[in-house]
Design a protein around this nucleic acid. Structure first.
Lengths: 334, 334
DNA sequence: CTGAAAGCGCTAACAG
DNA sequence: CTGTTAGCGCTTTCAG
């Protein structure tokens, strides 16, 4: 409740001096600074970011746009961002695009962003041409985390490379009958990374001379339940793969459950390999290509803050790395 | 970039008239309003919330405090909140308390909240006495979602009742050897709901004359991986329960996987019942007591906005309901 | 090293 | 129905 003016009055100083002292602007007598800060916390002074923002044009907030909150990747990135920003004077304004039926206006691009946030981080969000055009008018820095996004600098892994590595792993173990549990989904249009990963799977599999029956290409929608259903159905059929490559760990968890249910053993009957490095993958003993979405979030947050504070913006970021972790879910075919 | 003053100049009106017209304040000529709004979107006018807030003292943001983002319950509540607020003029500022080692300052209670948010919703967050004392100084409305929180009005289910219902279900099926996969966790201090649920389990079980071996009381920490480990270990032993009651669906998923792995069938060898109504529970064919955290979030968001807009605050909220959904994971003991 | 004054963009009395 | 005049709390020239 205390304002800068009250502190000034209390100390017989001017508002300007108090303001400078509080912000550590050079050129103020050391003991003046001491008095001011003492008075400030005696009075329980808390700066009004809104008022400061009115003068400076900076709001000390970054907007984070996520497609939804119930996917491991999205909220891992978000966690990285919030953790990083917690140590700074910046707050996160959350724009969750998840709506019941794909409906609702995505107003973040309209009024909301403007004047409200100093920067924007988008997480694996697909934008329409109109939206991208609007972004051009924003003067705030933007960074995308996830698959490459037209018009935005992106932080993320190479989807082709990571899926190729996962597929190559089972190929090298000797598997030649390969199934894919991909990220496609009956309802929503395919995401860039679902497409990339499927292509990488196909190329790697075919290059190795492997068989890929069309019925072994499953649409798991990056969901555990869809994965369970798709895998249960596939493995009822007599013709089946000896290895299942999953586009995400979550789907792999569902797949492993469904396989057990069907009376099939992992890895004796079916090998399972996946992409993510989910915190639960160890308990499932799942072989997976680990990426680190939280680190990607940290990187994005640091970069965007640096930019807001005046650093020269890099025009692009290095591709994030990944690492194959071999565990017990994969073995040579029997 | 356009301001209210520019519109006023353009139209030969005063700032006040423009301001009123834009906000729909009654008592402005219809055609004036028309002109103003026309000019506004011709000029691409976007109001500065910061400036408005400086005058009115309202920032059009609500702070949401979550313990972390990677638990189903927390982000379901958060989804309910963001969806509700998306239709309003309010933004969400996210305070994620998740820190690597329980470290980091929980600065939301210090400076951050003040001046920055018009209201606060806390999700299943445990506060220290100091923090609660600080809250008393805040003049912003606060609501807690989750287990009862001292000093705050709470929206949530009755943990005793829901766990009693889950336990009663297997008791009624005839089970007398009951295990609990609870929310306790080796590292962190127990949460109120973990305690309540354990007590409810014990009472219901003992009242039915059931056997509960101490070694059947598992600490799953509301995590899938901990659940897998705990259940794997328990079911290696010859003395085991015929039914496993889980304090969350996530843990039940881990339990069901571990049981399959151990060569045990659900429900033939072991019945599994749980609490939550997770979106994946259907695919697991899991019997569960469904609560609706998203609806709790919606409720909290609506209530808090109403209060900010001047409605008289209710002193408490009705307890949220739940519903037992019987599926294939439970059956009479064989 | 410190102060005075103007202004960020909007709202809110108070007049007309 | 519309205009004038003060502010909201802070930063920032420009002077001392």
């Amino acid at each position: 409740m205390a304002t800068i003016a009250q502190i000034a009055a209390e100390l017989g100083l001017s508002k300007s001096t108090v303001s400078r002292a509080l912000r550590g602007v050079p050129g103020i007598a050391a003991d003046t600074v001491a008095q001011v800060t003492a008075a400030a916390d005696r009075l329980g002074y808390v700066p009004s970011i809104a008022a400061a923002g009115l003068s400076t044009g900076r709001n000390h907030t970054v907007g984070v746009v996520v497609p939804s909150l119930n996917r491991w990747f999205y909220n891992s990135v978000l966690t990285g961002i919030t953790r990083t920003l917690a140590d700074t004077a910046y707050d996160v304004i959350l724009y969750d695009l998840d709506r019941p039926h794909g409906g609702g206006t995505r107003t973040f691009s309209r009024a909301l962003l403007r004047q409200r946030v100093d920067a924007v981080i988008t997480v694996a969000t697909v934008f329409s041409a109109d939206e991208l055009a609007e972004f051009a008018h924003f003067d705030v820095p933007m960074i995308a985390v996830g698959p490459p996004t037209a018009g935005l600098r992106t932080i993320g892994i190479d989807d082709i490379a990571i899926m190729s590595a996962a597929t190559a792993h089972v190929v090298e173990l000797g598997h030649r009958r390969l199934g894919l549990l991909g990220g496609f989904d009956a309802e929503t249009p395919p995401h860039r990374n679902a497409i990339d990963r499927e292509q990488a799977f196909m190329r790697t599999a075919l290059a190795a001379g492997a068989t890929v029956d069309p019925s072994w290409m499953l649409a798991g929608g990056y969901r555990v339940d869809s994965a369970i259903r798709a895998v249960s159905e596939l493995f009822r059929s007599p013709s089946r793969p000896t290895a299942l490559v999953c586009a995400s760990d979550d789907m792999a968890f569902g797949a492993m459950y469904a396989l057990q249910l069907a009376g099939l053993r992992v890895p004796e009957d079916v090998s399972v390999v996946s992409i993510d490095g989910h915190e639960y993958s160890e308990a499932y003993d799942l072989t997976t290509c680990r990426q680190d979405p939280e680190a990607q979030g940290v990187l994005a947050a640091r970069a965007i803050i640096a930019e807001v504070e005046g650093a020269e913006p890099p025009s692009s970021f290095p591709t994030a790395g990944f690492e194959l972790i071999v565990r017990g879910s994969t073995a040579p075919p029997s």
